[in-house]
């Protein structure tokens, strides 16, 4: 599967997520990795953090910095990178 080009702002946001979370293809030494998670799963989780339905440590605070639409784009791009792994293969 060929990764579609995300809009650049989304790509920037996803890179920021990798400040804590392991990049796809790297060893699982980060926090929760996104391996084998679908875009929908990630979107639902991010939205639940944003609404406070799900509680965590920093994720509630961070998810509120993005609109629901932004979270959807971020989740979609993350899932795609995970599925492809190649763009971030180190």
């Amino acid at each position: 599967m060929q990764a579609t080009e995300p809009d650049p702002a989304t790509a920037v946001s996803v890179q920021a997520c990798y400040g804590c979370h392991a990049r796809p293809g790297t060893e699982a030494n980060g926090l929760v990795s996104f391996s084998a998670r679908s875009a929908l799963e990630i979107t639902n989780k991010l939205k639940a953090y944003r609404s406070g339905e799900l509680t965590s440590t920093v994720m509630n605070r961070i998810s509120r910095g993005y609109s629901p639409a932004e979270l959807e784009s971020i989740a979609a791009h993350m899932a795609e990178l995970t599925a492809n792994e190649a763009p971030c293969s180190r």
Partner: peptide, 20 residues
């Protein structure tokens, strides 16, 4: 427990960042 989780996250954050 939450404080302990955050302490563990601190170390994993460091490992992830230095790996990257």
């Amino acid at each position: 427990e939450t404080r302990a989780v955050e302490a563990a996250y601190a170390q994993r954050w460091f490992d992830n960042l230095t790996t990257q």
